[in-house]
């Protein structure tokens, strides 16, 4: 771990910048990408290809009136977004970009990320409850239920990777793919389950039930405005970043690239590609029904993930170490 002092401050500043930039550029990128998928152009008017839309949105978000519904539980209403935002931001601390280049190179980095994400459903349920609004209540409960049920297959799928690497340190996991094939080849089932679970975890289409605008207006953040809405949005994009980063590190080799020198650029490219493909899904798919979603998690993904663990374990016994 890096020591206290300037180093820490610098890393913290970097962390903060990463967080803010992801959200801002994420919003812009998403609008552009989805626009082009839809044969539109996305933001166009302010600045070069609408680039100034970013600062404009930020200023708007900060300067907007912060409306608190009269009947809302004031205390909870103010605090609840923190339960979503803080864990999302904190989980970024576990990111590693190269061996030795990390915010905090935790020995149990993966565990830390999952632990942080477990706090988020509480935040969603609190948000849903505190507003005294039926849409937010339904949205918040849906979000909490969804997050809880998809954490399990996600963990189980990651377990296969952890078993074969023998470490929860993200650096180790990525390094383990430096010589052998990536985990997407070694554990394709795990990859599919993990990606689906991540999609659900970050509330993206086709699993965006909590925000289901066609039935729940805007889901759990219906009542939020101004910077509180901004915080929730920020947390969502951070979760998107973290989810894509996890898939890239766990299954797509992290900073490794076959035949080419390892570099954080690969990691960055993979993450952006994964983020863009979630936008692609969003542009194409409708959303599932709530009960189908739950069924999918409990009746399909979890049993398959368990079977995957057994499969990985038995293959580890049979096949040579280099492969598993």
């Amino acid at each position: 771990m890096s020591g206290l002092g300037w180093n820490t401050v610098l890393w913290l500043a970097g962390l903060f910048a990463l967080m803010a930039l992801t959200a801002l550029i994420g919003v812009y990128w998403e609008r552009k990408v989805i626009g082009h998928f839809q044969a539109r152009r996305g933001p166009l008017h302010h600045g070069w290809h609408g680039l100034l839309q970013l600062p404009a949105d930020m200023v708007k978000m900060i300067s907007k009136e912060d409306v608190v519904p009269t009947k809302a539980d004031r205390m909870l209403f103010q605090v609840a977004p923190m339960f979503v935002a803080v864990p999302a931001f904190t989980s970024l601390a576990a990111m590693t970009f190269m061996p030795g280049v990390a915010f905090v190179d935790m020995r149990h980095g993966l565990f830390f990320v999952f632990a942080m994400q477990t706090v988020m459903p509480v935040g969603f349920a609190l948000i849903g409850w505190s507003c005294d609004n039926k849409y937010t209540l339904l949205g918040g409960l849906r979000a909490a239920a969804q997050l809880i049920s998809y954490e399990i297959p996600m963990l189980l799928a990651a377990m296969g990777v952890v078993m074969s690497v023998g470490s929860m340190r993200l650096t180790d996991i990525a390094q383990a793919q430096a010589s052998g094939p990536w985990f997407i080849v070694r554990q394709p089932i795990g990859f599919v389950i993990f990606s689906l679970a991540v999609l659900a975890e970050i509330n993206r289409t086709p699993f965006d039930m909590p925000e289901a605008e066609s039935e729940l207006v805007a889901g759990y953040h219906t009542e939020y405005s101004g910077m509180k809405f901004g915080l929730v949005q920020l947390a969502e994009y951070t979760a998107l970043l973290m989810g894509s980063y996890l898939i890239a590190t766990l299954f797509l080799g992290g900073w490794n690239m076959p035949l080419l020198p390892a570099s954080p650029v690969w990691l960055f490219l993979k993450t952006v590609l994964l983020m863009t493909s979630t936008m692609w899904f969003r542009a194409t798919f409708p959303r599932l029904r709530v009960d189908t979603l739950m069924e999918m998690s409990w009746k399909i993904l979890i049993p398959v993930a368990l079977a995957n663990i057994m499969l990985v374990a038995s293959l580890m016994l049979v096949l040579p170490k280099r492969w598993f």
Binding site: H36, F37, A39, R40, R41, L44, F281, A283, T284, F285
Partner: peptide, 22 residues
């Protein structure tokens, strides 16, 4: 069908946009 849908949306990336620059 899902893959086909993805293919359709992906094709649109290459086609000119429909936006009217009013």
């Amino acid at each position: 069908g899902l893959l086909k849908g993805l293919g359709i949306t992906f094709q649109r990336l290459r086609r000119p946009t429909e936006t009217q620059l009013y």
